[in-house]
Amino acid sequence: MSVLVVVEHDRGTLADASLEAFAFARSIAGQLGEQVEALLIGADAAGLADVCAAHGAGAVHHASIAGDSVGDYGPEAYGMVVASLAALLLPSGIVASGTDRGNEVLAQAAAELDLPFVANCVSVKTADEWELTRVQWGGSLNEDALLRSRLPIVSVAHHSVEPQEVSIGATAAITEHIVELPEWVSRSVIQDRVVLSEGLTLATAPVVIGGGRGVGSAEGFNVLEALAARLGGVVGCSRAVTNNGWRPHSDQVGQTGTRIAPQLYIACGISGAIQHWVGAKAAKKILAINIDPAANMVVKADYAVIGDLFEVLPAIEQG
Protein backbone atom coordinates (compact mmCIF):
# COMPACT_ATOMS: atom_id res chain seq x y z
CA MET A 1 0.00 0.00 0.00
CA SER A 2 1.08 3.55 -0.62
CA VAL A 3 0.10 7.19 -0.48
CA LEU A 4 -0.33 8.43 -4.04
CA VAL A 5 0.65 11.98 -5.04
CA VAL A 6 -1.06 13.40 -8.12
CA VAL A 7 1.71 15.54 -9.58
CA GLU A 8 0.69 18.85 -11.11
CA HIS A 9 2.49 19.99 -14.24
CA ASP A 10 1.75 22.07 -17.30
CA ARG A 11 2.84 20.40 -20.54
CA GLY A 12 5.68 18.72 -18.72
CA THR A 13 6.75 21.66 -16.53
CA LEU A 14 6.36 20.82 -12.86
CA ALA A 15 4.18 23.06 -10.70
CA ASP A 16 6.28 23.86 -7.62
CA ALA A 17 3.24 23.38 -5.41
CA SER A 18 3.43 19.66 -6.20
CA LEU A 19 6.53 19.47 -4.04
CA GLU A 20 4.40 20.57 -1.08
CA ALA A 21 2.09 17.64 -1.87
CA PHE A 22 5.08 15.28 -1.64
CA ALA A 23 6.09 16.71 1.74
CA PHE A 24 2.54 16.32 3.00
CA ALA A 25 2.23 12.79 1.61
CA ARG A 26 5.49 11.79 3.31
CA SER A 27 4.07 12.82 6.67
CA ILE A 28 0.99 10.67 6.05
CA ALA A 29 2.94 7.72 4.66
CA GLY A 30 5.26 7.90 7.68
CA GLN A 31 2.33 7.43 10.04
CA LEU A 32 1.06 4.49 8.01
CA GLY A 33 4.47 2.87 7.53
CA GLU A 34 3.98 2.97 3.76
CA GLN A 35 5.76 4.52 0.84
CA VAL A 36 4.91 7.56 -1.25
CA GLU A 37 4.23 6.94 -4.93
CA ALA A 38 3.75 9.49 -7.70
CA LEU A 39 1.19 9.69 -10.47
CA LEU A 40 2.23 11.57 -13.60
CA ILE A 41 -0.58 12.15 -16.07
CA GLY A 42 -0.03 12.83 -19.77
CA ALA A 43 2.58 11.83 -22.33
CA ASP A 44 4.57 15.03 -21.70
CA ALA A 45 5.03 14.34 -17.96
CA ALA A 46 7.39 11.36 -18.23
CA GLY A 47 10.45 13.55 -17.67
CA LEU A 48 9.38 14.40 -14.14
CA ALA A 49 10.08 10.96 -12.64
CA ASP A 50 13.44 11.95 -11.16
CA VAL A 51 12.19 15.00 -9.32
CA CYS A 52 9.43 12.78 -7.86
CA ALA A 53 12.06 10.33 -6.67
CA ALA A 54 14.12 13.13 -5.15
CA HIS A 55 11.05 14.20 -3.19
CA GLY A 56 10.49 10.77 -1.79
CA ALA A 57 8.50 8.79 -4.36
CA GLY A 58 9.48 5.12 -4.11
CA ALA A 59 7.64 4.36 -7.35
CA VAL A 60 6.36 6.46 -10.21
CA HIS A 61 3.25 5.70 -12.25
CA HIS A 62 3.08 7.32 -15.64
CA ALA A 63 -0.41 7.33 -17.10
CA SER A 64 -0.94 8.14 -20.77
CA ILE A 65 -4.40 8.56 -22.16
CA ALA A 66 -5.27 6.20 -25.02
CA GLY A 67 -6.04 7.83 -28.38
CA ASP A 68 -5.29 11.49 -29.02
CA SER A 69 -8.50 13.25 -28.05
CA VAL A 70 -6.83 14.45 -24.82
CA GLY A 71 -3.52 16.06 -25.66
CA ASP A 72 -3.59 18.76 -23.03
CA TYR A 73 -4.95 19.28 -19.51
CA GLY A 74 -8.65 18.78 -18.92
CA PRO A 75 -10.24 18.51 -15.47
CA GLU A 76 -12.63 15.72 -16.36
CA ALA A 77 -9.98 13.70 -18.21
CA TYR A 78 -7.43 14.05 -15.41
CA GLY A 79 -10.05 13.31 -12.75
CA MET A 80 -11.03 10.14 -14.59
CA VAL A 81 -7.38 9.05 -14.82
CA VAL A 82 -6.97 9.51 -11.05
CA ALA A 83 -10.16 7.53 -10.44
CA SER A 84 -9.08 4.69 -12.68
CA LEU A 85 -5.54 4.49 -11.25
CA ALA A 86 -7.04 4.56 -7.75
CA ALA A 87 -9.07 1.49 -8.63
CA LEU A 88 -5.98 -0.23 -10.00
CA LEU A 89 -3.39 0.69 -7.36
CA LEU A 90 -5.67 0.74 -4.29
CA PRO A 91 -3.65 3.39 -2.43
CA SER A 92 -4.30 4.23 1.24
CA GLY A 93 -4.72 7.86 0.36
CA ILE A 94 -4.48 10.33 -2.51
CA VAL A 95 -2.81 13.74 -2.14
CA ALA A 96 -2.46 16.73 -4.47
CA SER A 97 -1.58 20.39 -4.08
CA GLY A 98 -4.32 22.83 -3.08
CA THR A 99 -4.14 24.75 -6.33
CA ASP A 100 -6.73 25.47 -9.04
CA ARG A 101 -5.81 22.27 -10.83
CA GLY A 102 -5.01 20.11 -7.81
CA ASN A 103 -8.31 20.80 -6.10
CA GLU A 104 -10.27 20.52 -9.30
CA VAL A 105 -8.79 17.18 -10.36
CA LEU A 106 -9.32 15.63 -6.92
CA ALA A 107 -12.90 16.92 -6.78
CA GLN A 108 -13.56 15.37 -10.20
CA ALA A 109 -12.00 12.07 -9.11
CA ALA A 110 -13.93 12.06 -5.83
CA ALA A 111 -17.18 12.77 -7.64
CA GLU A 112 -16.47 9.92 -10.06
CA LEU A 113 -15.69 7.53 -7.18
CA ASP A 114 -18.54 8.88 -5.04
CA LEU A 115 -16.11 9.54 -2.17
CA PRO A 116 -15.48 12.56 0.02
CA PHE A 117 -12.70 15.01 -0.84
CA VAL A 118 -11.19 17.39 1.70
CA ALA A 119 -9.52 20.47 0.24
CA ASN A 120 -6.69 22.52 1.70
CA CYS A 121 -5.55 20.48 4.67
CA VAL A 122 -2.66 21.55 6.88
CA SER A 123 -2.29 18.39 8.94
CA VAL A 124 -3.48 14.80 9.05
CA LYS A 125 -3.55 12.21 11.79
CA THR A 126 -4.33 8.82 10.31
CA ALA A 127 -6.68 6.50 12.15
CA ASP A 128 -9.82 4.60 11.15
CA GLU A 129 -11.25 7.99 10.45
CA TRP A 130 -8.57 10.50 9.47
CA GLU A 131 -8.37 13.50 11.80
CA LEU A 132 -7.68 16.50 9.66
CA THR A 133 -7.04 20.16 10.13
CA ARG A 134 -7.96 22.23 7.08
CA VAL A 135 -8.31 25.90 6.34
CA GLN A 136 -11.53 27.85 6.08
CA TRP A 137 -12.10 31.47 5.06
CA GLY A 138 -9.07 31.29 2.78
CA GLY A 139 -6.77 30.56 5.73
CA SER A 140 -8.24 32.88 8.36
CA LEU A 141 -9.66 29.96 10.34
CA ASN A 142 -8.74 26.33 10.86
CA GLU A 143 -11.30 23.56 10.94
CA ASP A 144 -10.75 20.24 12.67
CA ALA A 145 -12.60 17.60 10.70
CA LEU A 146 -13.11 13.85 10.55
CA LEU A 147 -12.88 12.05 7.24
CA ARG A 148 -14.72 8.76 6.92
CA SER A 149 -13.78 7.11 3.63
CA ARG A 150 -12.44 3.83 2.25
CA LEU A 151 -10.00 5.98 0.27
CA PRO A 152 -9.17 9.39 1.79
CA ILE A 153 -8.61 12.06 -0.89
CA VAL A 154 -7.07 15.31 0.34
CA SER A 155 -5.26 18.38 -0.96
CA VAL A 156 -2.67 20.33 1.00
CA ALA A 157 -3.14 24.07 1.56
CA HIS A 158 -0.67 26.03 -0.58
CA HIS A 159 2.30 27.41 1.39
CA SER A 160 1.37 25.43 4.52
CA VAL A 161 4.25 22.93 4.30
CA GLU A 162 7.87 23.29 3.20
CA PRO A 163 8.91 21.15 0.26
CA GLN A 164 12.10 19.21 0.90
CA GLU A 165 14.34 17.08 -1.27
CA VAL A 166 14.80 13.90 0.71
CA SER A 167 16.82 11.58 -1.50
CA ILE A 168 19.10 13.60 -3.69
CA GLY A 169 20.02 11.85 -6.91
CA ALA A 170 17.49 9.06 -6.38
CA THR A 171 15.77 7.42 -9.30
CA ALA A 172 12.49 5.55 -9.14
CA ALA A 173 11.09 2.68 -11.12
CA ILE A 174 8.53 3.93 -13.65
CA THR A 175 5.44 1.89 -14.38
CA GLU A 176 3.67 2.81 -17.61
CA HIS A 177 -0.14 2.78 -17.74
CA ILE A 178 -2.36 3.40 -20.73
CA VAL A 179 -5.77 4.59 -19.60
CA GLU A 180 -8.88 4.29 -21.79
CA LEU A 181 -11.26 7.15 -21.21
CA PRO A 182 -14.77 7.71 -22.54
CA GLU A 183 -14.99 9.98 -25.58
CA TRP A 184 -16.82 12.78 -23.73
CA VAL A 185 -13.94 13.74 -21.42
CA SER A 186 -12.38 15.74 -24.27
CA ARG A 187 -15.15 18.36 -23.97
CA SER A 188 -13.36 20.12 -21.10
CA VAL A 189 -9.78 19.89 -22.38
CA ILE A 190 -7.86 23.15 -22.97
CA GLN A 191 -8.42 24.28 -26.55
CA ASP A 192 -6.11 27.25 -26.74
CA ARG A 193 -3.81 29.48 -24.73
CA VAL A 194 -3.32 33.22 -24.62
CA VAL A 195 0.09 34.36 -23.38
CA LEU A 196 -0.21 37.69 -21.62
CA SER A 197 3.00 38.12 -19.70
CA GLU A 198 6.37 36.52 -19.55
CA GLY A 199 8.56 37.10 -16.57
CA LEU A 200 7.70 38.30 -13.10
CA THR A 201 4.22 37.79 -11.73
CA LEU A 202 2.61 38.45 -8.38
CA ALA A 203 2.99 34.80 -7.48
CA THR A 204 6.70 34.59 -8.34
CA ALA A 205 8.21 38.07 -7.76
CA PRO A 206 10.81 38.39 -4.96
CA VAL A 207 9.31 41.71 -3.86
CA VAL A 208 5.69 42.80 -4.05
CA ILE A 209 4.71 46.42 -3.43
CA GLY A 210 1.05 46.43 -2.49
CA GLY A 211 -1.18 49.48 -2.49
CA GLY A 212 -4.52 49.96 -0.77
CA ARG A 213 -7.22 52.56 -0.50
CA GLY A 214 -4.57 54.86 0.98
CA VAL A 215 -3.04 55.24 -2.50
CA GLY A 216 -6.14 57.22 -3.38
CA SER A 217 -6.23 56.92 -7.19
CA ALA A 218 -4.96 55.01 -10.21
CA GLU A 219 -2.26 57.67 -10.78
CA GLY A 220 -1.21 57.33 -7.15
CA PHE A 221 0.22 53.93 -8.07
CA ASN A 222 3.02 55.62 -10.05
CA VAL A 223 5.12 55.87 -6.87
CA LEU A 224 4.63 52.14 -6.25
CA GLU A 225 5.52 51.32 -9.86
CA ALA A 226 8.69 53.38 -9.57
CA LEU A 227 9.85 51.53 -6.46
CA ALA A 228 8.90 48.18 -7.98
CA ALA A 229 11.06 48.97 -11.00
CA ARG A 230 13.95 50.00 -8.73
CA LEU A 231 13.73 46.75 -6.73
CA GLY A 232 12.85 44.35 -9.52
CA GLY A 233 9.45 43.61 -8.06
CA VAL A 234 5.81 43.89 -9.05
CA VAL A 235 2.83 45.90 -7.83
CA GLY A 236 -0.13 44.33 -6.07
CA CYS A 237 -3.20 45.81 -4.43
CA SER A 238 -6.15 45.33 -2.09
CA ARG A 239 -9.78 44.75 -3.01
CA ALA A 240 -10.65 48.35 -2.17
CA VAL A 241 -8.38 49.28 -5.08
CA THR A 242 -9.84 46.87 -7.63
CA ASN A 243 -13.34 47.83 -6.54
CA ASN A 244 -12.50 51.45 -7.31
CA GLY A 245 -11.19 50.43 -10.72
CA TRP A 246 -7.67 51.74 -10.01
CA ARG A 247 -6.00 48.41 -10.85
CA PRO A 248 -7.13 45.23 -12.62
CA HIS A 249 -8.31 42.32 -10.50
CA SER A 250 -5.25 40.31 -11.56
CA ASP A 251 -3.25 42.58 -9.21
CA GLN A 252 -5.41 41.76 -6.16
CA VAL A 253 -3.77 40.02 -3.23
CA GLY A 254 -5.97 38.05 -0.83
CA GLN A 255 -8.63 35.44 -0.29
CA THR A 256 -10.30 36.05 -3.65
CA GLY A 257 -7.15 37.28 -5.38
CA THR A 258 -3.61 35.91 -5.57
CA ARG A 259 -1.72 34.25 -2.70
CA ILE A 260 1.75 35.71 -2.68
CA ALA A 261 4.93 34.44 -1.02
CA PRO A 262 7.73 36.91 -1.87
CA GLN A 263 10.88 37.58 0.16
CA LEU A 264 9.37 40.92 1.09
CA TYR A 265 5.88 42.36 0.89
CA ILE A 266 5.66 46.13 1.24
CA ALA A 267 2.03 46.96 2.07
CA CYS A 268 1.32 50.65 1.53
CA GLY A 269 -1.93 52.26 2.64
CA ILE A 270 -3.51 48.87 3.34
CA SER A 271 -5.36 48.39 6.63
CA GLY A 272 -4.80 44.63 6.76
CA ALA A 273 -8.31 43.19 6.67
CA ILE A 274 -8.29 39.45 7.35
CA GLN A 275 -9.16 38.63 3.73
CA HIS A 276 -6.15 40.61 2.53
CA TRP A 277 -3.83 39.28 5.23
CA VAL A 278 -4.43 35.62 4.33
CA GLY A 279 -3.16 36.27 0.81
CA ALA A 280 -0.03 38.02 2.07
CA LYS A 281 0.95 36.11 5.18
CA ALA A 282 3.15 33.59 3.34
CA ALA A 283 5.59 36.43 2.55
CA LYS A 284 8.92 35.86 4.33
CA LYS A 285 8.93 39.43 5.65
CA ILE A 286 6.27 42.11 5.65
CA LEU A 287 6.87 45.86 5.82
CA ALA A 288 3.81 48.04 6.38
CA ILE A 289 3.75 51.70 5.44
CA ASN A 290 0.74 53.40 6.95
CA ILE A 291 -0.24 56.69 8.55
CA ASP A 292 -2.10 54.78 11.24
CA PRO A 293 0.17 53.05 13.78
CA ALA A 294 -2.80 51.01 15.00
CA ALA A 295 -3.68 49.57 11.57
CA ASN A 296 -3.90 45.79 11.62
CA MET A 297 -1.28 45.59 8.87
CA VAL A 298 1.18 47.55 11.03
CA VAL A 299 0.47 45.47 14.10
CA LYS A 300 0.96 42.17 12.26
CA ALA A 301 3.91 43.17 10.06
CA ASP A 302 7.56 42.41 10.81
CA TYR A 303 8.53 46.02 10.07
CA ALA A 304 6.64 49.26 9.74
CA VAL A 305 7.13 52.83 8.74
CA ILE A 306 4.56 55.23 10.12
CA GLY A 307 3.88 57.92 7.58
CA ASP A 308 2.43 59.04 4.29
CA LEU A 309 3.28 56.58 1.55
CA PHE A 310 3.71 59.48 -0.89
CA GLU A 311 6.60 60.74 1.22
CA VAL A 312 8.10 57.41 2.22
CA LEU A 313 8.16 55.56 -1.12
CA PRO A 314 9.94 58.24 -3.21
CA ALA A 315 12.52 58.69 -0.45
CA ILE A 316 13.34 54.96 -0.59
CA GLU A 317 13.36 54.86 -4.37
CA GLN A 318 15.77 57.78 -4.60
CA GLY A 319 18.08 55.95 -2.23
Binding site: K300, A304, I306, G307, D308, V312, P314, A315
Partner: peptide
Protein backbone atom coordinates in the same frame (compact mmCIF):
# COMPACT_ATOMS: atom_id res chain seq x y z
CA UNK B 1 6.83 42.41 17.71
CA UNK B 2 6.67 44.91 14.83
CA UNK B 3 9.97 46.73 14.38
CA UNK B 4 9.21 50.38 13.67
CA UNK B 5 11.80 51.61 11.19
CA UNK B 6 10.88 55.25 11.63
CA UNK B 7 8.43 57.93 10.61
CA UNK B 8 7.89 59.49 7.20
CA UNK B 9 10.69 60.07 4.70
CA UNK B 10 13.25 59.98 7.50
CA UNK B 11 12.74 56.21 7.67
CA UNK B 12 14.10 55.66 4.15
CA UNK B 13 17.71 54.84 5.17
CA UNK B 14 16.48 52.19 7.62
CA UNK B 15 14.27 50.67 4.91
CA UNK B 16 17.21 50.58 2.49
Amino acid sequence: ETIILGEGAAAAPAVI
